[in-house]
C-alpha cells in the first residue's frame, strides 16, 4: 500500500461488518435513518454532512458527500458555503479560546 487512504476503500465501508456484524448492522441502520427526510430535509442533512466531513477531514466522507450533495441538486456555491461554515466554526473555536488565553494572561500580569 502506497498511501494510508485508498479511494477504493470507500466502497468497502460495509465490509466493517466482517469483524463485528451486530454493531455494524446497528450502525448502518441508524445511519440510514439519520439521513432520511425528517424535520430537516435529506438535502439539508447532506450539506451538514459535507461540512462535518471537512471538520473531521475525512477524505472518504468528502468524496461521498460532495457526490451526494450534487445528486441532491446542490451547486458549487452551496457546497463551498457549507465548507465555509465548517471553517468558520473551526476558526471560531480557536479564536474563542483566545478569551481564555487573555484571562490567563491578565491573571498573570501586573
Amino acid at each position: 500500500m502506497k498511501t494510508y487512504y485508498n479511494p477504493e476503500d470507500l466502497k468497502k465501508f460495509g465490509n466493517i461488518s466482517e469483524f463485528e456484524p451486530n454493531l455494524a448492522k446497528k450502525f448502518f441502520d441508524y445511519y440510514g435513518d439519520v439521513f432520511k427526510d425528517g424535520a430537516l430535509t435529506a438535502r439539508e442533512k447532506s450539506l451538514i454532512a459535507l461540512a462535518v466531513a471537512h471538520t473531521v477531514q475525512c477524505p472518504y466522507c468528502i468524496d461521498a458527500y460532495t457526490q451526494d450533495t450534487m445528486e441532491k441538486g446542490c451547486d458549487e456555491a452551496q457546497l463551498m458555503e457549507a465548507v465555509h461554515v465548517a471553517a468558520a466554526i473551526r476558526g471560531g473555536a480557536s479564536l474563542v479560546h483566545g478569551v481564555q488565553m487573555m484571562n490567563k494572561y491578565k491573571d498573570l500580569s501586573m
Binding site: 427526510d37 430535509t41 435529506a42 438535502r43 457526490q67 451526494d68 450534487m70 445528486e71 441532491k72 441538486g73
Partner: peptide, 11 residues
C-alpha cells in the same frame, strides 16, 4: 455531470 439524479420529490 457524471453523477446520478437525487430524489425526485426533493428536487
Amino acid at each position: 455531470g457524471a453523477f446520478l439524479p437525487g430524489d425526485q420529490s426533493g428536487l
